[in-house]
Design a binder for these strands. Structure first.
Lengths: 218, 218
DNA sequence: AAATAAATTTAGACAAAACTAAAAATATGT
DNA sequence: ACATATTTTTAGTTTTGTCTAAATTTATTT
């Protein structure tokens, strides 16, 4: 696959939310930052190659084969993101652009070895799961901390309330986006939580918990 | 610079041996695996861009600017090679193809961080020096072990005699291509050497030393 | 120094991936 | 249901990097 073809495949995959949903020409054009007419051309080509199923005026979806390719690209992308954060000290929000380039490197051995080097990580720095070599992976969902079962592990991916006092609280308690959080238990009395961030256990009110989004994989 | 342009720049650089030598169209065509007529086109473009100096029928050389680009590509290539060997356990001879792709990734930060992650290596797995960020670097030369000064450090890059008995000797003594060798001293009596391979000190005859090529940087 | 050989360039085409403008199909509003 | 708006496709160009074949320049022989 060429670089462009791979970009389209990934775009179809992401617009279809991982399910095998048909996506529109316009949506695709927006996603890959090009004109609809260019999308029509490319989508015909992908269809001829057996990567996608295209019906004029009806949209495109990925074939089995196309999905395999998409998952392999997602796998590469997320492994590189882990590498950038864990080994090269990139921050949470700097990795995407570089991973977007690295995911196109063609070498099976490279990815296998990278996976091993990183200790076979299950999720990327945004809490999204990394597909296995054979393409299996669990879905991730974003939920408020007070809405997920005790014992879950998730990655902090956002806040509901972004007022200065709340952000200040997070800062003071060293809770940052990208942190991995384990939900230890919940107090029946006031609905407060004991959670663990890395090696550090802390206690937070129900109100705090209700403003923290975690990404968890079931 | 596009991928193709970068490939040409690197080819001009390597054919010119790092010096600023004028390179022929045919030689370039062979190097980048294309037809001479395509080279003519590209070389005109590079010249217009200020990357190269081209005179019809006379050949091309890199401009100052082109040389800076070439050195940055060489730097990236060699750093990635170190990464592949040191961190991902690739062997000596598997790294080139993958590094050839990785060198085109565009991110200054990525390379700076990679450099740091690797401990600011001075040479790649083939014993070739890694240019600094600003483009300085020492030349490497290939010499027989019995032809280099005591105290030198070099990387084993080849053998003069490749007969089975000699290769067997190397194997038995765990001397392999890519090994870093320190020349400790030379016996006046028989011209034999004490050398250190990694942490291991061994003794070899002058005849052995005369058949081992090391790459050293002065 | 003329004749031949080799290297290089020019001219014209092609494939990939994009674009613009116009046409066709589908969707929407009243 | 008809008119209009939106979406999508078609047709025809453009750019990048390549190619082939022919023409030109440079190098080598004799």
């Amino acid at each position: 696959m060429t670089l462009s073809e791979e970009d389209y495949i990934k775009a179809i995959y992401h617009l279809g939310k991982g399910e095998n949903i048909t996506v529109s020409t316009n949506a695709l054009a927006e996603m890959v930052d090009t004109k609809p007419s260019s999308v029509t051309d490319m989508v015909k080509k992908l269809s001829e190659k057996g990567v996608a199923n295209y019906r004029p005026y009806k949209g495109v979806s990925l074939s089995e084969y196309g999905q395999r390719i998409a998952l392999s690209l997602v796998r590469k992308h997320r492994l590189w993101e882990v590498f950038l954060v864990e080994k090269l000290d990139f921050s949470w929000d700097e990795v995407h652009e570089v991973a977007e380039q690295l995911e196109h490197i063609k070498s099976e051995k490279l990815i296998d070895r990278l996976d091993k080097h990183l200790g076979f990580p299950q999720v990327d720095p945004h809490g999204d799961p990394i597909p296995s070599k054979s393409g299996e992976f669990k879905k991730a969902i974003k939920k408020l901390l007070n809405d997920i079962p005790i014992g879950s592990i998730g990655v902090c991916v956002g806040v509901k309330d972004s007022s200065p006092p709340f952000l200040k609280f997070l800062d003071k308690n060293k809770i940052a986006l990208g942190d991995t959080i384990l939900v230890l238990d919940k107090e029946e009395f006031d609905g407060s939580y004991n959670i663990k961030i890395g090696e550090r256990a802390i206690h937070i009110s129900n109100q705090i918990a209700g403003n923290l989004y975690l990404k968890i994989t079931e």
